[in-house]
Each structure stands twice: as C-alpha cells, then as structure tokens.
Design a protein around this nucleic acid. Sequence first.
RNA 1: GCGCGUGUAGCUCAGUGGUUAGAGCACUACAUUGACAUUGUAGGGGUCCCUGGUUCGAUUCCAGGUACGCGCACCA
Length: 989
Amino acid sequence: MEIIEQIPINFFTKLHSCYKLLFMDETNQLPSRYESSEHEQKIYKLWEEAKAFAPKPKQEGEKTFSVLMPPPNANGSLHVGHAVFVTLEDLMTRYHRMKGEAAVWFPGFDHAGFETQVVFEKVLQKQGKSRFEMERDEFYDATLAYTKDNSEFMLNQLKRLGASADWENLKFTLDEDVVDLVYQTFVQLYEDGLAYRAKRPVHWCVKHQTTLSDLEVKDHEQTDSLYYLKYGPMIVATTRPETIFADVAVAVHPEDERFQQYIGQEIEVDFGINKRMIKVVADEMVDREFGTGAVKITPNHDAADFEVAQRHNLPTDLIAINQYGKLTDLAGPLAGLKVDEARQKTIELLEEKGLVEKIDTNYHHSVKTCYKCDRVIEPRMLTQWFIAVNQDGKKTGKNWARDAIQAVADNKTQFVTPRFRKVFDHWMSIIRDWSISRQIVWGIRIPAWYCQCGGTTVKLPSKTKLTFLRHGQAEHNVKQIGNGDPTQSYPLTDQGKEEIKKALTEFKSDNRHFDLIIASEMERTQQSAQIIADGTEIKIDARLNDVKLGGLEGASIAEIHEATSYHEQSAQGSETFTEVTRRVEDLLRDLEANYQNKKEVLIVTSEIIFWALRQVLHPELEPHEMKHHIKNGESYTFSLGDITPCAKCGQMNVERDLDVFDTWFSSGQWPHIVPKTTNRADDFERFYPTSVMETGWDILFFWVARMMMMNIYLTDDVPFKHIYLHGMVRDKDRQKMSKSKGNVMDPLAVIDQYGTDALRLALVFNTSTGNDMSMSEEKVKGMRNFANKLWNVARFTLMNLEGNSFEAIGDSSSLSSLSRMKSDIEDPDKSSSSGRDSSTPLPAGESAQNENKNEHTERSFDSAQDESLKTPQPLNQADKVILDKLNHTIKETTRHFDEFRFHEAAQGLYQFLWSDLADTYLEAAKEPLNGTDDDAKVNTQQILLYVLTKTIKLLHPIMPFVTELIWQSLPSAAKDNKLLINASWPVND
RNA sequence: GCGCGUGUAGCUCAGUGGUUAGAGCACUACAUUGACAUUGUAGGGGUCCCUGGUUCGAUUCCAGGUACGCGCACCA
C-alpha cells in the first residue's frame, strides 16, 4: 500500500462542533443507545431540503438508473408488503445514486378501480349507504375524496420508510395527463384493430355487478351433486339443472355410436314446466367418458356451450339467469329465485315428473369465484371491450403476446430469478383476450360512444368546457317584440348590462376564465360579450343568431307565439325550431372538432339557442319540453366531451359507454406514462427503459406481463431491463398475514418501536430472492440491536478521536476506564478466524489504488468536500486484518448489489460490522488507543475513522437513517459530501 | 392432468461440487457498568427429505420417489 500522510494534528480540533449537534444529548453526553424515533424524521427532512431525491442533471455519457414504484392502491394504509418494495427499491436507488449515476425512483399512486370501489363501498355500508342509491358523479366524487385523503396519508407513511423517491413528480393514475395518454392508447388500439367490442362469455360477479378478467377469478374446489336428467330419449349429466330453461341443444361426440341415430335430429324434451324441441348436435368438445356422453347446451350460462352454439349456429338469446343471479321468466314458476334455491326447486320439480335418473352427490369439481367476495361467478354473454392479445395490429402489425415473449427470449428483459421466466413464458403462451370493461364507476371511463345508427365512435374526448350565456336584457325585450334580424339595433338596457356584470362577478368568484368567447351577430350578444371579455378574443358566429322571423320580424311575442310553435311550423318565412337546432348542432360539431383543448369557451346567445341545445343534448325529450324559460344573464355549463358526434352518421345524440377500464389497463402503461409526464422534458429519453421492475410475484400476470405487452406495443422498446420479483411476507410461523388471522404487522408501529433501519434490514436479512420471507418482532428486534451496535462503534470511534488530545467530551470516567479493558489484540489467529471470509484473504501488499480518484470522476453533483480520507497504513496484524476485511467487504457488497443479492450484502455487512469490526478490531484497538505510543494511537484512530466511514457508506442503502446520522457527526475532513445520501460509493483497493 | 417451487439446527431461513455446513431468534454456562446488557466470552444442537446416478469428492449437479406450498388447465 502506498505511504500515506498522517492526519494533521489540527484535524481533530475540527471535531467537536461537527457531531455535537446531532450526536449528543442535552446533558452533553453521547447517548449510549441509538434512539431511532428521535432522529429519523429530522434526517429525512435533511434529504428533502437538499432535494436529494431528484436525479442529477443530464450529462454527456451519463449512466442512468431508474425504478418505477409499483403505485400503491390509494385506498388503505401501508402494510408490510409496501415496506418490502420500499426497502428493495430504495436501497437500489440509493446504491446507484452513491455510485454517481443519475438515479431516479418514480413514485405514484393507483386509483385501483375495482379494489378501491370495493373498499369504499364497505365504508359506505358502514354509513348505511350503497353506491346503487347514489348518482354516478356523486359516488365518483366521494371515492375521489376518499382516495385523495388516503394517498396523502400513505405518502407520509412511505416517507417514514425512508423512501428516497422523486416526490416532486408524484403521479396519480387519474391525473389529467395520465388519463390523456391512456385514452390515446385506447384510440390507437382501436384504430389498429386490437381493441374490439364484442359479445363474449365473461365472468360476472353477482355481488359487485361487474365483469372480471380471467385473472380476477379464482378456482375453488368443492363437492357438489352431479344430476343425471332424463332428456327426451337421452340422459344428460349436469351440475346446473337450473339453467335447463335456457337450453338450446344437446351435444354428443360425433363418433359416439350410442347417439348416431339422434345427431341432426330434434328431440322433444320435458323441462318440467314445459316441453320444447331440442336439437342434437355433434361436437368434438364432448368427452364420451364423462357422465352419459351427452351435454346439454346453454350458451348464455357457460363459456364452452357458447362456443358450441356458435359452431352450430344455435340461438344464443335464451337467458335463464339475470344479472342479479336470479331466474328469469323463462323458468316459469321458478322465476325470481336465486340460483342455489332454484337448483333445489328445479330438481324437486323434475323429480315429481320422474325426470331425474340419478344424483351423484359426491362430485368433485372446481368453480370460479370472485377473488374479492368468493361468490360463485355467473358466466354471462355480454357486449364488452376486449384487447386482442394474440392478433397482429392491422396497421402496426404488432402482436402483444408474441412481441413480449420475443423480447424476453432476446434477453432484452431479464428475470433476476429465472424460474419466473418459465412462469411468464407459460402464461404468455396460453393468454386469452383481455376483457377490459368494468361496470363500475371508479376509474377511467372508456372513450367510446354509440349511436342509434349502430355506429361506434372511439376518440379522445374533447376537454373543452362550454358555457352558454343568455344576453342581458335588450330594448326589444322591454318592448316584448321579436327580433331575429341582426341588422336591427336593439342595444342592451342598463338593466341588461347589470345582469351581465352580475354574471361576470359570478364567473370570477368561481375562478373561471374564458379562453374564447363566441357571440352571435345580434347586437345584444356582442355587447354582452364585450362586458365579459376583458381582452379575451370574441368570435362572431351566425349560427348562434336568434330565430329568423321573416315576415314576423318586429311583431309582438304574443303574435309570434300564435303564428308558430317554433317547431315544424313556419309562418311568413320564419325559421323552424328544427332548423335552429340543426345550426346549433352544426356549431357544436365544429367546436368539437376544432376546439379540443380550448379549456373554457363562452357562448353568448339567445334563449332559443338554449332550447335548441337542450334538444341536441336530450333528443329523447318531446318538443314541448324544450321551452324552459332562460332569464337574461343566465348560463349553463357542460363538457364538450359529452357530445362527441357519431363517426358513422354525424349525429350528436350518441351515448358514451358507461363502463370504465380495468384498472390494470392504465397502470399497465405506467412505465412510459410516468417519464413522459414529469416536470423534466427529457425523462423519457433518459430513463426509459427503466432499469428494474421490482414488485411482488403475485402481480406478475396482473401487472408485469401487461406492462411488457403494452409498453413494447407503444414504445417499441421493453419497459424495463430487469424484473426482480420478491416474495410475500409471512409471519414467524410461515402463515400468510391476514387481518382475519390477526397476524398482520403494521410497519409504522414497528418503525415507532424499533426504527426504520431495523425494519428494512429485517426485510432483507436471511431472505432470498423471490421466496416468501418470514417476519417477526424478534427478528426486527435483532436488527435494531445491530443498528445500536453500529451506533456504538461510531460512538467509540468518535469518543476516542476526541479523547486523544483535545477537548474532552462525553463521560470522561467511562473513557478512562477503557484502559482497564482486557483484550486479546496480540492474537492474530483469533481475529482472522472470526471472519466468514477468512479463507480467502486478499493478497497482501496488493498495491492500493487511491479511491479518491474514482470519487472525483463519479461525484454527486452537490458534493461539498474534496478531501476524504486516504487509505491508512496498517501498523500491526489487527490493522492489516481489518483493512483486508474492509476491502473484501467493499468488493463483495458491491458485487452483491450489482447482482441483486441484497440479502448477501446485508449478511456480509452484518458479519463485518459486528464480528470483525466491533468484536475483534475495536477490542484490539483499545491497547494502542490507551497506550503511550502516540504514532500507534493516531494510526489506530485513523484506521477506525477510515473503516467507520466506509462501513456506513456500505450500509447506507439498507439502513439510511442511522448511517446518515453518524455521517453528520463525522469530522468534515472524512467526508466527500455533506450528505451521505450523495456521498460516493466506496471502491475496493 | 401440466408446470413451478420448497424440504438444511428447537423455530424462521441463508449458503455451498472441496477443511469442521452457517445466520437470526431460542437454549446452556460464565462474565459484569468497560463503546454497546439493545453486551461480551465459551458452548450444546444437523442422516443438509429418501433412493439411485455423475464425480477423486454430492447437502450442492442429474434422474426417480416423497411431503408440503403455489400457478395453469380441465371442470357437462
């Protein structure tokens, strides 16, 4: 090792002020315990104030590191699963930040559509309310408020976990810019033929009144009865006799000799309540061995039957069970019964008629259940939106599943745990089209409109808000005469001006500003517009003019009413109401096409235009219902997005789909959306693809696979280079944590008691990638002890620096008693044998590379100090061993972090700190520290400080708080940055 | 039915083709204000699931079996 300079003697005099602030207690002593709760939030604030969580500015040839936070569902509080991902993602981010890379961790929250709605409905239930009794908007707003409250609460909890995420760019899946991109994707998929609407078998939850995707249903093994029913001349076996009322056929295997005589025939079947002719079809799908080899076909209540029905052109319109899981009128006397009850009654009914051959009461099978409420899923045929995942886009030629499988095959995305790659590949190879419509309120409403003409319109909804304002009172109003001719002058009265000023005041008090004002050619609307304008552009549009009165111009209102109803009747060349409606419709269509992003448009016009508008928006209303009196200065606001014209026929009276997207449709796009919507313009270019996707294996299909497919489709690049899937946290007896078992661990309570660092270390210590981990208070306690050990190593080091020759601090009696300590520093074998890595010591005398060089080139951007400690020279065997072991630990820790083996990094550091440094070196150091050889003493101090400095750097990613606190107490000469979070990662010699 | 994983100390789990297989917790004995009792020293505790194979050598790699867990499919 190179000869290094001795630390100058005045170095130590700087010490006192450094650590006095944070490290010492009120009595001017070093507290002997690390009290996490006293420091953590202050430390966190230190980082926040230094804006340490933002990535450093772009540099040429920079290395970047980015991770996307799996956006927590904003509907509850933090559980231990959140603590796992925070720990893993934060330690990766901190590690790469210290390595000098531009590191960013993108945070967000998920509205979590169905999940949140289920949670919130329970909240409502406690208040005695139900969503089915609430208006859509009312329910949406209430859920939004609930979600906002929760995310604010959870944000603080995430911070308590030490998360160094880029909070300035905290995204929410319902943010306007996010929703815009989600809409855009859907439109693109629709135009590419990959988003389609079709009647298909879907999973229907009777309780939640919505469809669910294949992933949202669980298989539940159970024992039921298999009923053998007489079916004309045949016998069929079924578990669902209550569906017979919607039977359309009976299917047999084409080669089944028993039934050859019936194939293609119609047989008469007695259903107990009536008799119907039923067709016998031959289909390969039938298993000759099962039951009787004959299957009743009920297309509306079984997915497989639906397919048979399609193959044989059988009717698919018979519905025996409605959306509430009750029998329909098809069931005659059984109508209205719920499925379970209906099954019993059906069998009773059939038995009475002697139609039940036998009942096998011990039939094992599995049924699909709702993953939220465990109720049996009712298969239904519904018209829904689907994403074709195995089809080539007709424009792009891209194929979701194929492209994702290929990307993994090409190693563009690698699984950190290879076994999950097999699971992924298998799932991708059998994936079916994705049902994305949900019949719930909470979520992003599908931007699709349906017209009576049969046309479907899919487009980005206009974001423009339209406000119609009736002009103020004009002179013709006072005279009670009609004026539809814009060349006539009937200016506003003083009262009319006041009415508009009043409207303006109201607009202002609602904080509303108009980007554009459109008035008619009528003098009164232009005058009104002027009063509102205040510099805003005013356009004139004749389509907003009052009704043309022809020969009735200037006649009294009464006269005009007598002569025309404004509708189809025209008197003396006047315009009909239908004609007025047409020009209003024409104007709206024009606005919709050309003013997508004018946020607020004010339209100043006449009363009849309001009526026409009402007709356009509510075509179902009768003509006489149009004439609501609109006062002068009265206004009405609505969203232009609500009146998208039909893409096929141009009609305005299209209806928007009530359904919302499956929440994973939006969160699946997170990787490209988030970097595109931060407050930095080049984030997408710099940070996409992200470096690692870290999340639980339980959402591999829900989220990770969908992200792969969607983002490859949208960006032509994979969303992440590595996939790191962590296991589930179980309790100390390996049981799953659940509220009902009462074995859940509240991470915040654990933090309060033992500290965040202890919790974080416990979550990586003695675990392995991808496997479930068990957690217990005892484990956290042990890790808390480790934090305390680290604290005391630092305390020992600092007290000994100070105690040497300078201002005495702390408990001097305890310092002097150090000399009484017995130690076995003379026994080198002992010290080397205690290390787990002692079998592979680094070659002695290997030339030391000054790590400062490296730290210079990869320094964090706001680094404060230039002079960090140089590698000290070992004077004795203990010195040499600890420096070797440190070097080895640096090397191993770095390797483990690079290879995503955080548990090994943690274990190595634990061993090094506790056994090698505390138990061995510190004991050995006591002799020179208390001896009379000043050179040996100073050298030992130097080594202690050096090793401590490097060690807390190595531990920082896992245990950010206690390490930062110690760092703040170190002499500034030992540091290369004011904050450890921005300090450089150690490099081994 | 297909696939995946796990099986290592009393418990929860790391780890490894090569000395005596480790950690945390628990346990035993001793130590005692020493940086730390949130401690130290010493110690007990193992058929690394079973069988076979490859190998100089297998807890590790391979095959089969077994137990447990999970995923997917079937599910009339």
